[in-house]
């Protein structure tokens, strides 16, 4: 366990030596090293080859990307045999614009958007980025395509077992294709 000084530590403020002690700051650091599970490793390997993969449930055909190794709805396990390559174009089904709250480790300072996508040919992704698109232009129905990190810069060092938000080293985000927006009937039952 390590004590670390928080950036906004108040220790520089004048302290009244006679004031009663009502609290103390105690900062700790815990380190976790988790092995990447096989299905996520395969997902990461595919990202390096500019391929987006998922597992298609053999029973209900729902697609999970990144693969989980099972379909939680049918409670069946999925394997490499259920792997499919997904299309890298799709529709924004919903979005959220987050005004970042400051907390220890928060690097965002300006409002940012996260979107949910329905990919052409099937498969849904959540918590995706639209870099370069002003947040006020983000909308449901927008057609987008993937933006891969360029060769040489692409990496999967931050990929974890813990869902999305860690593939930015390989996928910069998604960009509008400029096509007309999709009709809500094409995606409205898939917003999640």
């Amino acid at each position: 366990m390590t004590d670390t000084k928080q950036p906004d530590s108040k220790q520089d403020e004048a302290v009244d030596p006679n004031a009663p002690i009502t609290g103390m700051d105690y900062f700790m650091k815990l380190e976790y090293h988790e092995l990447i599970c096989p299905v996520v490793r395969e997902f990461a390997d595919a990202l390096m080859e500019k391929r987006l993969i998922g597992h298609k449930c053999p029973k209900c055909s729902l697609i999970y990307s990144p693969p989980r190794g099972y379909c939680p709805i049918c409670t069946v396990q999925t394997t490499k045999a259920d792997e499919i390559e997904m299309q890298t174009r799709g529709i924004v089904t919903n979005y959220t614009v987050v005004t970042p709250v400051q907390y220890y480790g928060q690097e965002e300072t300006e409002p940012f958007a996260k979107v949910s996508l329905q990919l052409d040919g099937g498969g849904n992704l959540s918590l995706q980025d639209l870099p370069g698109v002003p947040v006020e232009q983000v909308r449901s129905g927008m057609r987008v395509e993937i933006v891969w990190a360029p060769d040489g810069e692409r990496h999967v060092d931050d990929v974890t077992n813990r869902s999305w938000g860690s593939a930015e080293g390989a996928i910069r985000g998604w960009k509008p294709t400029g096509e007309p927006d999709a009709d809500p009937s094409e995606y409205s039952d898939k917003v999640f």
Binding site: L35, I36, P38, R68, G69, Y70, T75, Q77, N161
Partner: peptide
């Protein structure tokens, strides 16, 4: 000592 599977992944067959 260290499973490369996630908790839900190794729980899955046990529950089944």
């Amino acid at each position: 000592r260290a499973s490369e599977l996630t908790e839900p992944q190794f729980l899955f067959p046990v529950i089944s």
